[in-house]
Nucleic acid binder design. Sequence first.
DNA 1: GTCTGCGAGGTTTTT
DNA 2: CCTCGCAGAC
Length: 786
Amino acid sequence: MNGDWIDEAEAFEAAETRPLSARAAAARPTPYLDGLNEEQRAAVETLEGPVLVLAGAGTGKTRALTTRIAHLIATGRARPNEVLAVTFTNKAAREMRHRVGGLVGAVVEGMPWLGTFHSLSVKILRRHAELVGLKSNFTILDTDDQIRLMRQIVQAERIDEKRWPPRMLASLIDGWKNRALTPERVPSSEASAYAHRGTELYAAYQERLRTLNACDFGDLLLHVVGIFQNHPDVLDRYQSWFRYILVDEYQDTNVAQYLWLRLLAGRHRNICCVGDDDQSIYGWRGAEVENILRFEKDFPGAKVIRLERNYRSTPHILAAASGVIAANESRLGKTLWTDVAKGEKLRLIGHWDGEEEARWIGEEIEAFTRGTRGAEPVPADAIAILVRATHQMRAFEDRFLTIGLPYRVIGGPRFYERQEIRDAMAYFRVAVSPDDGLAFERIVNVPKRGLGDKAVQEINRVARENGISLLEAARALAAERGLSARACGQLGALVADFDRWHALAREGEDHVGLAEAILEESGYTQMWQAEKSPDAAGRLENLKELVKGLGEFENLQGFLEHVSLVMDNEQDEGARKVSIMTLHAAKGLEFPCVFLPGWEDGLFPSQRAMDESGLKGLEEERRLAYVGITRARRFCTISFAANRRVYNQWQSALPSRFIDELPAAHVEVLTPPGLYGGGYGAASPAPMSTLADRAAEADVYDSPGWKRMRARAESRPVSQPREARDMVIDATAVPAFAAGDRVFHQKFGYGVVRRVEGDKLAIDFEKAGSKNIVARFVVAADDIPF
DNA sequence: GTCTGCGAGGTTTTT
DNA sequence: CCTCGCAGAC
């Protein structure tokens, strides 16, 4: 998306008046339809009118979608540039383009309207920017810029930053934008109850954006919706142009996106939305599951097609996932099925603490890759560990580093969100558009030039009072000696540098060379070279990477847009490594072998989700569980730990309530290692190191106390999974403890059982206070094995 | 204007 | 425990 919109706009004008000659050439062979099942075929061939495709996990959704596009083009119902295909992520857009290309050949080169909501919005907005008071070369702000801008406003309004953190206000505004609420439209109840003068600040923020000629991510959509609503002539042209609209991951759309789609589909009404209400996991970011639940109301006469045949997972895995998701109330309901062989049950295991969980999973992974588990070796890149929260990753990284297991963390800070990249980008931004005040402010004192808060405030004041850009204000201040001599000298030099770089950029100087020169001459590279911290080298490496990436673009301008909207960090895809990522990041992916650690109440489901959103939050967490399980093709292992170090304090937790929802018939409960001695031999072949460890501890496991405890544990196994609908507590699950029993816990010491609930005990510890503990993690006080 | 010490807070994050 | 942001000290 490097400034080519003008050409496309012209093509748009020209093409519109041409007859649809391609349409005459219908009735070509349709080899791409071969191999689709009946429902997929319906999803592909039901072309006219609104269609909702409810596609469960692993049911060939992307295939149906891409084939549908191919079909539209091949049958001549639409030219490639008359099809609007929308995704959420760049990755999904790329993949779709790639796969459609594979089906219909090079024609997709001419599919300019396949992209993310945001990138398509930019394309539209650049053409009509003046209608919302922007110039077509507006810049796009990311979250960081947004917050900094908000901070400026908060300061200008003399609002207490402690009570109204800019961060919070920015996310409040984000939320309003997600719901397509402009400042005037925010319900007064929210505006005042939530944030002191909320809408007022929102309006001020929008005003600032306009003067900066900038948009935040939310604006991209909202401005387009606004243009469509206020300029029927513009809307009319787009409506007529897009004969067919396709939307991926419809369950993740927010109100703004919904309006965007509904407006565009208003004429032809050929809109096909694909999604899965059970996989809606972005509610906290403004996604409205209701959009998919209401589809038939919004688009009367809609056809609903269900894809329920799963091509990914074994029956045990599907049944377990279905059992969990069945506990949700607000869902459209699907029944996934498959006819592949049964495969292995899910495995469930409880651990003493998070470290042991990581150790055990590490050993399991080695067993899988070596082929001692399952029939043949599973390559490391076929294995994934999916966690609820990023902080869970550390235990695995630590462990894998010590045993030398290659892994990669997916997600984490994006390339362009890193400090050094953002700084470099800010330099480029000012060089290209000297008016970019936010960028200028970011780097005016990076590296340190002795231009601190005071200087920056002064520049801002001059800029505001004279209605000029920050760079011009800086120029004036330096010339008029409006600051200390030292500051004036530095500022003058910086302004002169930018003048020079700007001139070079305009002259079309080789932009890669220019970028290098900017980083060099500004002293930015030098700054990191001088820095001794361990990550400085990595940062320099990233800068090199950035400059290298520039080479693929025609000019800096094009690159800047790419980075702000599209760039993501794809890394060594080829390498054989275990993946560690969040459940959110795993959506849309699949792995032969999946580990789901940390299934403890409070962590997963997350306490915060439940506190903030109640039942709705819990249901979203449950969908997350569903997403997690359905990533697995053949092996899925769920685990929990009784104790976890959180901020270096020991906390105990109960197994996740989702574990109780796993249908018992599809789950194999493993005996945890370490606890009862010998558990290992039964559960999995232990690597040498572990056997050695065990041997060293052998005498402990031989004590009478352990033997007694072990015998009791076997009659009352780990947190018994039950049938989801079986609400009665299984008699065998009743623990051997009673209220009043004196018990011992390895971490918390002695205590007295206060209450017994199934296999969970409420215990008052002498030192550690009261805790909820699973019965098998404590021993009767007289059974202590030493 | 930059450095140090103290207190608060510490989910998920497509664009 | 570790990181960030701020207030006060240089």
